[in-house]
Amino acid sequence: MSQNSKHIAYPIEIILNRQLADCLAIPVFITDTVGNLLFYNEPAEEILGKRYQDTGEMKVEEWSMFFLSKDEKGKLLEPEDLPLVKTLLNQLPYFKTFWIESLKGKSEKISVSSYPIIGRAGIFVGAVAIFWRPSDE
């Protein structure tokens, strides 16, 4: 008989963030520690142009291609300038307002807050990015 369960569940900190996201009217993306997309809520589906029930989880290389991130002058932002990427690198919260452009060419000014998920054990288990429409809009 196996000594431990072979089934791997997500840490409850990830699960609870999903449950919260599922109740919110603002777009929320939840990733693992390297940026693979574990969950996005219904409002976030509008940004991605995809439905979570269709895509399930996505590798970072896959979901990061669904929109472009640009500054006010239309210049592409480096990944290291994006809040979520910085959170993944540094395990700290970040905030930035910038422009995103969907694959269909639709541009939108967006503010992003990101934070690391660090559980009771003090272990970094993932990150959350919340997209806001800027208050000056």
Binding site: S5, H7, I8, A9, Y10, I15, R18
Partner: peptide
């Protein structure tokens, strides 16, 4: 079950 609290323990 990946999104179910406690499932790893009970499986």
């Amino acid at each position: 079950i990946r999104w179910l609290s406690g499932s790893e323990l009970a499986y």
